[in-house]
Write a protein that binds this DNA or RNA. Structure first.
Lengths: 239, 239
DNA sequence: TCGGGGCATTGATCTAGATCAAGGCGATCT
DNA sequence: AGATCGCCTTGATCTAGATCAATGCCCCGA
């Protein structure tokens, strides 16, 4: 836990800079900054939200669990963003568990205070809407991926999207262990491994976490990559 | 096209009843009501939104298409709700095509006017947030379904959720053709058919569009149904 | 230096579900 | 009625991807 003013006021979050001083003070009165260690579980699937979490630094990973206990990565939330505002705003139980894969820092705002502030402040509402909309679209993309593409196509498109997000058209650095990426893509680690090696015949080269893409257009063609829908979004709604 | 006042003012949409008269008049100045025939395409995947569509009566179905031309149902939007506010609010191209499966009526609001109104009016923003949040959660549920369950489990859980939505614990009426439901569940019509017949051994009875559930708890157990996450949501955010 | 545990690759098999193919059953039209 | 067109079911295969199993690699700790 730190001094709130230091963390939030100077503008790690553009959103908070935009808010009026009185509103910001109001929100922060119900808030706390928390630094958490790698591995921490922020909340469980089924919990009723008590805080809106905001990622100030680091990231959170969201996992879905089946009744049989199988667990898959659904999404990673990176600073700066809200952690599943949908659950907090509806007051419904979380559909996912949140874990922290690296030392990270979060702003916690009491759910009721957050809801009240969103209802009262158009600027905050605007930011929440932007975050929600982006997250919604990510989920839609993932569903299209799962329903319309083969495992290998998903892997190829994932690499292409990754390289674009990293602003490097012919290289991608895998953001976490291959096992996790596989579960994000809805396949096993073995299949992921095999997909990568089969894509070597489509012009990629894998070395550890680094993937070199020799012929992006060819890869895109073979994987049914669609620039319009698969391109990562530009963040014009900033939190 | 009809008289707007008749359609909207009396309160087919609770939201509009709640808005101030001046704000409502303002919005409706940039709006139009459209009655469309079954089969109409409202917009294509890749289009940039020009209107926010609101379902006044009937429904819209959202389809995702792959570059190879395969097409699957992602979601159905029923009155009263907003049709993908995420696309309109971000201004990004639609990720899905919208088609109308039955004669329906829509309110069309110019995108810019809608965005302006959302930014200016906390009540409208509240409603949009509610709709977005619900839609987000539906997408998360669908992803969990696809990644964590077998085809047969998905079918069973679908039936259970359906029967709850229809407030009838031991019966479900399929809302559209089995082929479409199959594509919503991410399987072929053949697999859907087989899943239904295999579930006959778990206490269901299928007759056309009607499915009788003899032993819901048993079905739930065998399909890994999770009351906390699979239960349809209560609509406390109403449009 | 030697283990040991976690992740990754690779091979061998198995299987859920897709695909291909053939009727059947209603609808609607003539 | 008969014919045609959609949708649905059922059966026979095929295959993408899961599962099982063995090994290698790398990092870390004693």
């Amino acid at each position: 836990m730190h001094g709130l003013a230091d963390e939030v006021a100077p503008g790690a979050l553009p959103l908070f800079r935009a808010l009026s001083a009185s509103r910001r003070a109001d929100l922060l009165r119900n808030a706390v900054v928390h630094s958490v260690a790698s591995g921490t579980v922020l909340f469980e699937q089924g919990d009723v939200p008590t805080f809106q979490l905001i990622v100030l630094a680091g990231s959170a990973q969201l996992f879905g669990r089946s009744t049989e206990g199988r667990e898959v990565l659904i999404e990673a939330v990176r600073a700066p963003d809200l952690v599943i505002p949908a659950a907090v705003l509806t007051g419904a139980p979380y559909l996912m568990q949140a874990r922290v894969p690296e030392p990270s820092r979060f702003l916690l705002i009491h759910a009721a205070a957050f809801r009240a502030a969103v209802d009262a402040d158009p600027l905050l509402a605007h930011a929440v809407i932007g975050s929600l909309a982006q997250q919604f679209r990510r989920m839609v993309r993932q569903i299209k991926n799962l329903k319309l593409r083969t495992a290998t196509q998903r892997v190829g498109c994932y690499l292409l999207a990754l390289s674009q997000r990293q602003r490097n058209p012919d290289k991608a650095v895998l953001p976490f262990e291959k096992m996790l990426i596989a579960s994000e893509l809805g396949i096993t680690r073995e299949s992921f491994s095999r997909a990568l090696s089969s894509l070597s015949n489509s012009g990629i080269r894998v070395d550890g976490q680094i993937v070199v893409i020799h012929d992006a257009p060819r890869l895109a063609a073979e994987c049914g990559f669609d620039p319009v829908t698969d391109e990562p979004e530009t963040d014009d709604f900033v939190v």
